[in-house]
Nucleic acid binder design. Structure first.
Length: 406
DNA sequence: GCGACAG
DNA sequence: ATCTTGTCGC
């Protein structure tokens, strides 16, 4: 790869993007974000667009569209899912990475991390990478810092890969820049010059009768961009609706199209799953839970409250949140108090609970009001119950979960 | 000029 | 991405 070229675009070295330099070093912004106004296409010049197109074309030349010989589908241990949930009406969002591990045919979450992002650019079809990749890079960096032994064999990315006007959607972009195996998973069809709306309509109308059925998405040029795949296991009962939901799967990097399809199918065919592959579905649920909690309190909150919600999601499991909530109920702390005003002596709990949960938590969230704490602690994430085993005492505010070796 | 447009 | 509405199934 042409390193000087990429360096000139600020692409390498993880977090040195020209348009949001410093994002990772600045702390949580004021509620609503610094970019509270709506981002518009007019923020982007044609020259910038051309530069980004050139970057996509350049990266495309390094895309590996065959399977790694050392990683066949049966050898797949862990799968990561990346997704971003937005706060309504602002440019703020929560990006989430969930890593799942295969246990026979079940997929169990073994790692989860959420970060706050403040979008600097508008959504532009064909340039999703601008908005999402900086956040994905932060999540990758934090994973490698706090749980390198849990790095997945493949990342499923919410968006397209090769199925893209320049054959380099965000899934490929992320995979190529970091040398990772990636697969693009889109819920909607993307049409462009070589894959027209007419061809898209044909693909959409093609009946996929059973789970696993698929048709290739072939462009006018003959390129196979990916597959439309029936990933819903719902029975073909009612005519068509949710049961007709399908995904548009395309390779990101270091996969063949057919293996990418099979990996996505394997991640959908799990107990309690949906038509969305499990790691992405869980990442989406977590992002929504965080945004729901934030919505309840952000009007009156300090900026620190946003980070507090991330910490509660990242570092506490279901049981730990409930324990702290019940302690707050028992102590009867007033709405204008902070957690610091709760004396440890007044808590009627086992010493271990105080030492390993309450006191570290108290230290972690010093200047957040109790009503805001309650809203965060009431966050509902039942799927993450058995996710963490590390004591809060050994975790640190602002960090990703510290996953325990097992 | 107008609509379309992964998330 | 987000919203809504209706329908089906557990």
């Amino acid at each position: 790869m042409d390193l000087p070229y990429l360096l000139s675009l600020g692409i390498l070295g993880h977090r040195t993007w020209p348009w949001n330099a410093g994002q990772t070093t600045r702390t949580v912004q004021s509620p609503g974000g610094e970019n509270a106004r709506n981002l518009e296409m007019s923020d982007v010049t044609p020259a910038q667009l051309k530069e980004w197109e050139d970057l996509q074309l350049h990266l495309r030349s390094s895309l590996q569209d065959v399977d790694d010989t050392e990683c066949v589908i049966d050898g797949l241990r862990r799968v990561g899912g990346l997704d971003i949930s937005f706060e309504d009406g602002t440019n703020r969002a929560t990006a989430v990475l969930v890593v799942c591990e295969f246990d026979n045919d079940c997929l169990k979450p073994v790692y989860e991390d959420a970060v706050d992002v403040d979008m600097a650019l508008p959504y532009i079809s064909g340039f999703l990478f601008l908005r999402e990749i900086p956040a994905y890079e932060r999540l990758l960096h934090r994973l490698r810092e706090s749980a390198p032994h849990l790095e997945p064999d493949v990342f499923l990315v919410d968006g397209s890969g090769l199925f893209h006007p320049r054959q380099c959607g965000s899934a490929s972009h992320f995979g190529i820049v970091h040398g990772l195996r990636t697969i693009g998973v889109a819920k909607k069809l993307l049409c462009f010059d070589d894959f027209t709306r007419e061809q898209g309509q044909m693909a959409e109308e093609h009946v996929l009768q059973n789970f696993g059925d698929s048709i290739p998405l072939i462009g006018k040029s003959g390129v196979t961009y990916g597959f439309a795949v029936r990933t819903s296991t719902a029975k073909p009962k009612g005519n068509q609706d949710a049961s007709m939901r399908r995904l548009y799967v395309s390779i990101g990097h270091r996969f063949s199209q057919s293996t990418a399809r099979d990996v996505v199918l394997k991640c959908c065919n799990v107990e309690g799953g949906s038509y969305i592959p499990e790691p992405i579905r869980l990442a989406d649920l977590t992002g929504r839970a965080i945004e729901r909690a934030w919505k309840q309190i952000h009007t009156t909150s300090k900026p620190a409250a946003r980070q507090m919600i991330m910490d509660v999601s990242n570092l506490l499991d279901d049981k730990q949140r409930k324990t702290i909530l019940s302690i707050l109920d028992e102590v009867g702390v007033g709405p204008c108090a902070t957690l610091a005003s709760v004396p440890a002596e007044s808590i009627k709990r086992k010493q271990a609970t105080k030492d390993e949960l309450f006191l570290p938590f108290q230290e972690m969230v010093t200047d957040v009001m109790v009503p805001e704490l309650r809203a965060a602690l009431r966050m509902e994430k039942p799927w993450a119950v058995q996710l963490r085993k590390a004591s809060l005492r050994y975790q640190q505010a602002g960090k990703a979960m510290r996953a325990v070796l097992s």
